[in-house]
Each structure stands twice: as structure tokens, then as C-alpha cells.
Design a protein around this nucleic acid. Structure first.
Length: 270
DNA sequence: CGAACGACCTGCAGGC
DNA sequence: TGCCTGCAGGTCGTTC
């Protein structure tokens, strides 16, 4: 479900409700996520205050009094703030209750997400080898170009690798390559530094606009208040196979790259 | 080291 | 209506 704009939309939605709130209790209904929810969460978390809610790539980091709650939404996860007594739905795996009116509820049909606890955020194995944040000065054309010199894989796989740059998932990889005029199957090391510079500009532009519009709702993404994102109508190629290219009128093509659906304009992307 | 691929799950759309 | 297949926003672990 969520790429960086969707996770950031969720984060921004949660902050006004949860920042500075104290956790009262934790209800684990289903611990079998990608990794098991640690059963100790139920005893560790109560009485701790949520001090900050940050994001690293697609991970949400809840900075608490004594450590960090680390949440990834996987493909189908969602977080909502509800009254604690709200009816429990299918796949509501976890509640973090703050007050009778404020309960953070984690729902994840496919259970590809995770909810973990750590006191050492800097050395956590899921975080310490991630690439730079795309919306910071750390991501540059020079960086992508230099790192690509040893990469034989398709550029689309390359930019979707979270150890290269975080937050660029399948939707936004397709979109940014279209805007940069780069064919998604191009071998990463065959792309010039100048074109990587243009790609970085498009990555930053697309992610920024998508965040402003509250993310992309294709089927089931909802923000923390249960509403959809508004970025779908902005998509130029994703999920538009057979439709005319908005730039040149050619027919949008679909091919599999690295097992993932890849949409592109054969005329505009070379 | 890098690349390819299977694995983890449920839900849904489409074909018959 | 029901069954079957394939596909879906992620990414880790294994193997070569």
C-alpha cells in the first residue's frame, strides 16, 4: 500500500492526536506479522509518553520515554485513531490506547508489516543500512550516478532499492522515470550523470506534490482519519496501460521488471 | 559484492 | 453462483 508520501501522510495525521500523550494500555490481537509483535510491548509501553513521531524511509518511529516503537505498514497496513471502544474489525491486530477517546489501531490484512521495539535506533538492523532520504540534500545526481557504476540491474530496480534511496516504491518509480524521460529497463550504469540529476529533481518533485495531496489511493490506502489520498488523478503512467501518453499520445506500455508491473511511454522514455 | 527469485499473506477482479 | 488464476502499494533472506 504505502510508499513514502502515504507514510508521511499518516505520520502528519497522527502527530496532533498522539504527540505528548501517555500510553495507557496495549492490546495485541494477532502477533504474527512479518516478524512477531514482541509480547513484552504490552508491559513495556504503558506509562510511556510519545515524545515525537518521525519517519525513516517507510518506517514510522514513535519516540517514547524509554525507546522507540518502530512500525512498517508493509503492503496493506494502516493506522487509525479511534475511540478505544470502537468496534474491532477484521485484521485489527493491535491497539495502543491512550485515553478513552484516543486509541491507535493497526490493521493489516496481508500482515507484511511489522511492529517492533528498540532502544537503539541508530544501530537497528532494519534502519542502519538504508539509503538517504529522497527529500534531503543527501540525495543528489552525483550520488546516484556514482553508486550506479557497479550496478547491472534495470534503473527501476535500482531506484526502488531502499539501500540506494528510501521511499521510492513501484508507483513513484514509474512516475519519476516517465517525467525524467528514462526507460525503466535501462541498465543503471548506462545512464549519464546529467540524467541522474534530472531523475533526482523528478523524484523530489513527485514525492513533494504527492505528500501535499495526501498520497495516492488506488484501492485501499487511507490516511489516519480513514480518508483517501488525492494523488491518483495526478499519475501519468502508473495503472494506465493502453491509455494515451499525456505528453505525446503514444500508447502506454506495460512490462515486468524485477517481477513488478512497469508502465512507460515508448516514445518519451528512452 | 551484486543480481535474481522465492517467501511471507489476504483480498479482489476477471475468466470460465 | 462458484472455482481457479493472477495480481496487488514491500522487502527480507537465500542462493548463485
Amino acid at each position: 500500500m504505502p510508499e513514502l508520501p502515504e507514510v508521511e501522510t499518516v505520520r502528519r495525521g497522527l502527530v496532533p492526536y498522539l504527540k505528548h500523550q501517555v500510553i495507557k494500555r496495549v492490546i495485541i490481537r494477532e502477533h504474527r506479522l512479518r516478524w512477531p509483535i514482541p509480547p513484552t510491548l504490552a508491559t513495556i509501553l504503558p506509562h510511556q509518553q510519545v515524545q515525537e513521531i518521525n519517519r525513516r524511509g517507510k518506517y514510522l518511529l514513535f519516540q517514547c520515554t524509554e525507546g522507540y516503537l518502530l512500525i512498517h505498514l508493509g503492503m496493506s497496513g494502516s493506522l487509525r485513531v479511534l475511540p478505544a471502544r470502537a468496534t474491532v474489525q477484521k485484521h485489527d491486530h493491535l491497539d495502543i490506547v491512550f485515553t478513552p477517546q484516543i486509541c491507535l489501531r493497526y490493521n493489516d490484512p496481508r500482515r507484511f508489516g511489522c511492529v517492533l521495539w528498540t532502544t537503539d535506533i541508530l544501530n537497528h538492523p532494519l534502519l542502519n543500512s538504508l539509503g538517504p532520504e529522497p527529500l534531503t540534500a543527501e540525495l543528489t545526481g552525483k550520488y546516484l550516478y556514482q553508486l550506479a557504476q557497479r550496478r547491472q540491474t534495470a534503473v527501476k530496480n535500482y531506484i526502488m532499492d531502499s539501500h540506494v534511496v528510501v521511499g521510492v516504491g513501484n508507483i513513484y518509480a514509474n512516475e519519476t522515470l516517465f517525467l525524467a524521460g528514462i526507460h525503466p529497463a535501462t541498465i543503471a550504469h548506462e545512464i549519464s550523470r546529467k540524467r541522474y540529476q534530472r531523475l533526482v529533481e523528478k523524484i523530489q518533485q513527485v514525492l513533494t506534490v504527492a505528500i501535499e495531496m495526501g498520497g495516492t489511493t488506488l484501492r485501499d490506502f487511507t490516511n489516519s482519519e480513514g480518508g483517501p489520498g488525492n494523488f491518483k488523478s495526478w499519475l501519468k503512467v502508473y495503472d494506465r496501460v493502453g491509455e494515451p501518453c499525456v505528453q505525446c499520445g503514444s500508447t502506454i506500455q506495460l512490462m515486468k521488471i524485477g517481477q513488478r508491473a512497469s508502465y512507460f511511454c515508448p516514445q518519451c522514455q528512452r
